[in-house]
Design a protein around this nucleic acid. Structure first.
Lengths: 337, 337
DNA sequence: TTGAAAGCGTTACCAC
DNA sequence: GTGGTAACGCTTTCAA
């Protein structure tokens, strides 16, 4: 069974194919009569334009590609949702690719997306390096890095200001009177982790608290890690009275370790997380945390990508403001334990 | 700047374009010499085939469309992940569309996907009705309904066996000695809700417990709803001693209401949820729940879709087995309260 | 084993 | 306002 084409419509309407094309594309220089006639036939024949043919001709399929490690991770799901919202509003579709933190997968997907002639790329994947970006630029394939910064590249990225986020969290705890503040960081090979540490140190310094390196630990963004590190803190002669974790999952583990030992949050320890995933508000106690505006970040990424495409402009790195969400996992520092 | 085409490669390699095409497509009837020559040139020129042109010619762009209400919902994210895994393994890409439970959006997206000539559709969206399916069949666009059944349609769907799920949850509570078992259901306009209720009733009947309709409540799949309904139960002269909720979020609200009144889970009340979202294992107490195998469901949907495409077969509705995940929100019925 | 030619379904440019 | 024609980049059939 052949699908109906623009030619079938033309024949049935008694006009030339190019006229049908003009009608479809909303060209104005056509008599109302012809427009009506063509439109009627289109409906009658149930004609659906072939976007591939159009794409081949115009070099525009109105499709973006998005690379993320894993859509099942709520953080990336939020980004993806923001991206899709903005793309859809502008008539674009997005092909989503899960790379599982594998460089190989990233490269395979990228190739696939190039073959498909996507008009732009949102890169929220993990392993991508500087030279891959150079490759993209050589091919003139517009991209935006999302929640991702690449060393040596000072443009076309959108992420939150992680330094500000770290500062915000730490400052909040300091203002509650805490002086012994632990920070459980993420893996050290990401900018996000390092910046959050910077913010943490900056706040300490700003408020005249000296940095104690035994209070800084390297975690893995998973609850298990938070659990072990907190247990370790609890063995200290002088454990921290407040903990800032580099993400919410770490805070989950911290909470577990504290409860297990019979202590209470926020009475005995104050906790601040990072991300504000759905989980955070449902923990007991509900977790005070630094919110990343995932939807906004994704949305903005597309807006900027479109600007790049339409006006050929490059953008400096953009940093969105993090926000402190105050819930019930922190309290004023209590002298007596 | 023109992109390099198959013709450029041909010229540079001193062969005919059709020969290049044959090399790209792994045609065997070519001398090793020519293959090598062409491959070298392809690399030199950095040639990337145009999938649109190929798709136009072959009518196969190897792309699927997937309609879901909201990727930010962990349940759908799980499905999407499974779908993408399977699609990718078979050389397909997937265009993801968030419909926000809006029929209008569903229709708009569907049209877009048709124009793009996707080869198949995964429908996990909400509003779609029988007549839209008929429309798809008329257009010979293969589809699979995912976690979604449509009245009157006895084929091409994959979901879990919700009756079995409801039965499993209720049976578990009964075996713990509970006799007064409440069920907080979802919205009544979905098959999933109705089937879980059926399973609940079936278990009661099977174990000789008479159904008491005051113990069955209609919820909304949100924690707020669970909270209010549980508060209502607590006002009963004879409140249920165990609650089975139609999803995990409802259980979150139930837990809150119970704690607020100073009761303890699992000591005073036993709770079983449904879905097993990430949240479930991190609640306190960790929630016993019925797991839906999201990844498997998504994966299988693509496998079956491919079968339909390649072998033109229709499938009966497929029901996957739910699984009870035992955590710490249930205990044996205690006589004295 | 390779070349030639036609055509997939559009759009865009040039006539009239 | 509308028609004609060529071309987008590829695959496929036929012929050699």
């Amino acid at each position: 069974m052949k699908t109906t084409t623009i030619r079938d419509v033309a024949k049935a309407a008694g006009v030339h194919p190019s006229t049908v094309s003009r009608v479809i594309n909303g060209n104005t220089n056509i008599s109302q009569d012809t427009v009506n006639k063509v439109l009627t036939v289109i409906k009658e024949l149930n004609y659906v334009p072939n976007a591939l043919a159009r794409g081949l001709k115009t070099n525009k399929l109105h499709t973006f590609g998005m690379l993320i490690p894993d859509i099942a991770n709520p953080f990336f799901a939020g980004l993806a949702r923001g991206v899709e919202n903005a793309a859809n509003e502008h008539g674009y579709n997005v092909i989503l690719c899960n790379t599982d933190y594998s460089l190989e997968k990233e490269i395979t997907y990228l190739r696939l997306l190039e073959e498909r002639r996507v008009e732009g790329l949102i890169l929220a994947n993990a392993k991508f390096q500087y030279k891959s970006i150079i490759e993209l630029e050589k091919r003139r394939l517009p991209y935006m890095l999302l929640s991702r910064n690449i060393k040596g590249l000072q443009k076309n990225s959108i992420s939150i200001d992680n330094i500000a986020g770290g500062f915000l969290a730490t400052q909040y705890l300091i203002r509650l009177g805490h002086k012994k503040i632990g920070h459980i960081a993420g893996p050290y090979n990401t900018n996000a982790t390092m910046d959050r540490i910077k913010g943490y140190k900056k706040a300490l310094q700003y408020y005249g608290i000296s940095f104690d390196k035994q209070y800084l630990s390297r975690g893995d963004f998973k609850s298990r890690g938070g659990y072990h590190i907190m247990n370790n803190y609890l063995k200290f002669d002088d454990p921290p009275t407040a903990i800032f974790t580099a993400n919410d999952l770490l805070a989950v583990g911290v909470l577990e370790a504290i409860k297990e030992k019979g202590y209470n949050v926020p009475h005995d320890f104050s906790i601040v997380g990072f991300d504000d995933i759905q989980l955070a508000s449902h923990l007991s106690p509900p977790l005070t945390t630094i919110r990343q505006p995932m939807l906004d970040m994704g949305y903005l990424a597309i807006i900027k990508l479109l600007e790049r495409i339409e006006k050929q402009i490059s953008h400096e790195n953009i940093f969105l403001k993090p926000e402190l969400i105050e819930r019930k996992s922190c309290s004023k520092y209590q002298k007596v334990k």
